Amino acid sequence: MTRRIRTLLAAALVLGVAAGPASPAAASSPAAPAAPSAAGAHGAPALGALRAVLDELPNAHATAALVRVGDAGDAWQDSGGVHDLRSGRPADPNGRFRAGSVTKVFTAATVLQLAADGEVDLARPVRHYLPDLIPARYGGVTVRQLLDHTHGLPDGDFPGTDVHEWYAHRFDVHDPRAIVASATAKTRVAPPGKVQRYSNIGYTVAGLLVERVTGDTYENQVARRILRPLGLQDTYLPGASPRIRGPHNRGYQVFPMPDGTSELRDVTVWGVTDGWAAGDLISTTADLERFLVALFDGRVVPEPYLKEMFTLPADAPGATMSAGLQRYVLPDGRVVWLKTGGRWGYNTLIAATEDLSRTLVYSVNSTDAKGRGGNPVTEAITRAAFGVPSRPAPSGPPAA
């Protein structure tokens, strides 16, 4: 067991909290790793900087990281940190993890496949397909607007207002229809098509749309249309189960305490029905890389519908999100299309240039995976992978 792990574990035991799967763990906060000081030439991956970030794990910001970088046909993968704080054994580089809002890319691809099959019209109001779920006051919202976050729907209702309350409700099972009903009972937040506001609700509706149009479950449709054809054998949708099947690295979350201290708890087991079609996917870096390459290659969504994933809504000022992805311009002018995801204990990113000259997939076991301020480990990995020597790093909307 390394000195870094002994320090983390010792701090947990001093506070009298067991650091293991069944109990919360408290931890000290060693210094964060320095950001990579140099990038590769002409935007090439700075592999030395990437390795340096991984070598510093675990630290205050993350306990493990799994990274895969593609560079015009060359591939690099590595991992750092630990499987869990109790044993201190190395992180499993092939472990499964919660991909969070990366799920939205799979949902968008499924809807776009249905559009290509002639079963869905992207310009048609959602109410046409779901008249019993979408009230008349939201009758102008189109299927396309669900996917690009310009629908104007308010968020659904969930119990809790902070991480302690959400933790207490972590095993609640949520019905997507009830989530939509709680949202559509409220006043819209913006006229449809005019404002882009990132949220889960549009993709919850999209999942229900898939079910209504196909007469099948959302999970079966994603598996039939994407997972099985691409051979994504380690990717699945967990339904009501709060556990991760198969090998996986454990996730931890910092909890602020009333006395001003903090506590690091194992949050690996946590239900994801609040996210469903917007955020419940479990996968591996290898599977997500395969999906990313196949998607950009046109082997998941056919043209002209693939263009929807690389087109921003014209009438929403400042829009950065398309159907499932987000556009980011690097300092050297390269355009990257990406999607982030965050579930408690896990941060994920898939990103690539449209021509696939550079790809990046990571899973980082962030100790504040839902934090709004960004994570130094994920930022350092992204900067090094895209050859960006200083901030800003490509980043998605707040992880959901």
Rank of each mutant, 00 (worst) to 15 (best):
A22T: 13
Y218I: 15
E308D: 11
D234E: 15
K307F: 12
T161V: 10
G231Q: 06
T284I: 04
P159V: 15
H61T: 04
L208V: 03
G156N: 11
I282F: 14
V14F: 05
P176V: 04
V272E: 01
L15R: 15
W270N: 09
N365A: 07
R137M: 08
G140M: 08
P58L: 10
D234G: 14
G160K: 15
V14C: 05
V69W: 00
A109N: 07
G318V: 05
F386Y: 12
T284K: 13
K104H: 09
I5G: 01
V67W: 03
D266H: 01
D132N: 13
Y252Q: 01
W166Y: 15
Q145L: 11
R197A: 11
A19E: 11
G279W: 01
K339Q: 10
A116D: 05
R51E: 13
S357Y: 07
G88E: 07
P247V: 05
F296R: 07
I350S: 00
P36Y: 11
A136N: 13
T284Y: 03
F291M: 06
V210T: 02
V111N: 06
V120W: 02
S101I: 06
P331H: 12
Y218T: 04
K307W: 12
Y362I: 01
K307T: 15
H164L: 11
E219K: 13
R243L: 05
V126N: 00
G202Q: 10
P93A: 12
A115S: 13
L9D: 07
A116W: 06
L330R: 06
A206P: 03
G139H: 03
R68C: 07
N347E: 14
T348N: 00
L114T: 02
L54Y: 03
W166V: 09
Y167I: 01
V82H: 00
R144F: 07
L57Q: 04
G333H: 11
V205D: 02
R358Q: 12
G341I: 00
D368Q: 13
T320H: 10
G48H: 08
A123D: 10
T184F: 12
G40L: 08
K186R: 09
L360H: 02
P229R: 14
L146R: 08
T204N: 06
L230H: 08
Q77W: 06
R124Y: 01
P397S: 13
H164Q: 13
A75I: 09
L356Y: 09
P176C: 06
N375K: 05
P90L: 05
G231A: 03
D117Y: 05
L47D: 12
N375V: 04
R3H: 13
V102M: 14
W166P: 02
Y218R: 15
Q233C: 00
R197W: 05
D55P: 10
